[in-house]
Design a protein around this nucleic acid. Structure first.
Lengths: 332, 332
DNA sequence: TTGAAAGCGCTAACAA
DNA sequence: TTGTTAGCGCTTTCAA
């Protein structure tokens, strides 16, 4: 900066003003400074700026432990990075190191101006510590009631409502629900959609057909084996996540049942593999990149107006009808 | 820091020494300082440290344009982040904004101490600019001959050799190769493995069966339709990447051919979907997390000894035999 | 073994 | 419109 100032025959301060676009600089001076900047290929040092301004221009995306950086958050990260880059910010990727709600290193070190908290595995206690430290946060694919935090979720309720209504419209009256822990907001919502769709069609929700498992293909398989192994079995299964549905298809294969012939299956999320399965999985598409993008938007709102009412944004979902549900028309 | 110093009854300088573990501090003073740090929950400000030391403790993972942050780099990022965190560093994720070899923002701003350059889409000119700016770099899944840069690649040659030899051992004598641009190091190596395996088995490599396409499922499909639509067609196809093989399976389906009955298929990379296909895809597994981890190791070597001979590390691959190759024994 | 002063590259506040 | 001074939170250098 010193060099630029010398070359343009002005003080460092004037250079600083030109860089920041402060109007109180005469046109000709600005011109001279810009030329000097160009000639010297000068670019301001972000560390020094950060120290002087107390703004790092970094945002962290924190994903839960054990390192759950999968297809879903891959897209979210992409959407977030693109939006951050547009604003001159950078994305720091952080895998939580333990299940505890310890403050992440990047926070202790003050390396970031805010955080995107990915998924429901983020502990409530961590959210509270972060807020107590006045760190702007946005929840991604999660929502909490008590401390008011902005959040971005897919339309979990609406998506699941549409999925189950679709099954019902295909004639199914015996629909089971296999999902992860209902302490998770998104699972609760997806379950609510299932219940609402069922009940408003006059179908009874049978508790023994509502199964709670961990999020893995193997767990989806186990639950499905149990469900489908009985004589009194459902004719369709709605899974709260595609990975569980993968396990379900595995189970059906093991039992010699055809999908959708003997049992229809529908998932949620539209992970990359969903379309590649045999049969291709009918599922609810979540726009993950858009979620990342919007989360960044909310974060900036929070940074600029920390006391504003936190917004809770819901991203629309779309039912993607493939073959696993047995609908006549199958796209993709 | 001032506060800690006051509380411990020493100067800032002594606090700094204790934090950095500098020995010339008496045991009792150190004790007092540590207590004060604990009581005040003091944690050094990384921005200030960065400015004083000219070390940001940040590393960027740069992925090519158009934003190719897929399954492969998802795992690489995970491996890299874990290793960086162990060393007190952070990972900044950067999607290249254009095809040009412009210096990324994080570099101009001096936000990072080094870069991991992901994939062959990174322009040679960019690599050279980076090196000219004395920025430590490591190539990931890429290798160049001219400027000496450390790199981490899978055993592209060995993996493809094993894959094609396996096809040959199954009796195939008419094996085609579908791959992306041979200007890419990894494709060149994989092609070399194909040629070597073929020729040492006395098989003729037919140029019209060596097809070059872009990396997408659709391109894999198109190439395969062409290959398999002729009467004089191969009995097996080796794809330089799983995504292409997905397209291949699609093509076979369209042509009413069974895999592996009418044509055997083998991929490379072992992306997440590979095992889920019907039939499950035989492929060469690449340890992507390990690649990320090792890349970080190399980067630190380069940072600490910039003039040392750059290491070129090759990560072993493993042939994963599933069903698409037609082998009798199928695992997974 | 400890501390005081200067400086890393920038910006806020004030003065000219 | 422009420049000077002080300071962001740390570390380096030198002196005590």
């Amino acid at each position: 900066m010193e060099d630029v100032a010398r070359r343009a025959g002005v003080s460092k301060m004037t250079v600083s003003r030109v860089i920041r676009g402060i109007p109180s600089v005469s046109a000709e001076t600005r011109e001279r400074v810009l030329r000097a900047i160009e000639e010297l290929e000068y670019y301001p040092n972000s560390t020094a700026r950060a120290l002087a301004n107390d703004v790092t221009t970094n945002v962290a995306l924190l994903v839960g432990h054990p390192p759950r950086f999968d297809d879903f958050f891959n897209y979210v990260a992409k959407g977030a990075e693109l939006e951050l880059a547009r604003r001159g910010y950078s994305l720091i990727l952080v895998m939580q190191q333990s299940e505890e709600g310890d403050l992440p290193m990047v926070v202790r070190q003050r390396k970031v101006d805010g955080l995107l908290l990915g998924g429901p595995e983020i502990r409530q206690s961590l959210i509270e510590s972060l807020l107590a430290n006045a760190l702007p946060c946005v929840l991604l694919a999660n929502r909490v009631s008590h401390p008011p935090v902005p959040s971005v979720c897919a339309d979990d309720f609406g998506g699941s409502l549409a999925a189950v209504q679709h099954l019902i419209s295909l004639g199914h009256e015996r629909i089971a629900f296999v999902g992860t822990r209902r302490t998770f907001y998104h699972v609760r919502e997806r379950f609510r959609g299932y219940v609402t769709a069922s009940e408003s069609a006059g179908l009874r929700v049978r508790p023994e057909w509502c199964i709670e498992v961990a999020y893995s293909q193997e767990e989806g398989r186990r639950a499905s084996l149990e469900l489908l192994g009985q004589s009194d079995r459902p004719s369709a299964v709605f899974y709260s996540g595609d990975l569980l549905a993968l396990g379900g298809m595995e189970a059906a294969r093991e039992l010699g049942m055809s999908v959708p012939g003997d049992v229809a299956m529908v998932g949620f999320d539209d992970i990359r593999s969903a379309a590649l399965l045999d049969p291709p999985l009918t599922t609810v598409r979540v726009d993950k990149e858009e979620m990342g993008r919007v989360a960044v938007e909310l974060l900036f709102e929070t940074i600029s107006r920390p006391d504003a009412e936190p917004r809770q944004v819901t991203i629309p979902t779309e039912l993607i009808i493939r073959k696993s549900c047995g609908a006549a028309v199958a796209s993709q």
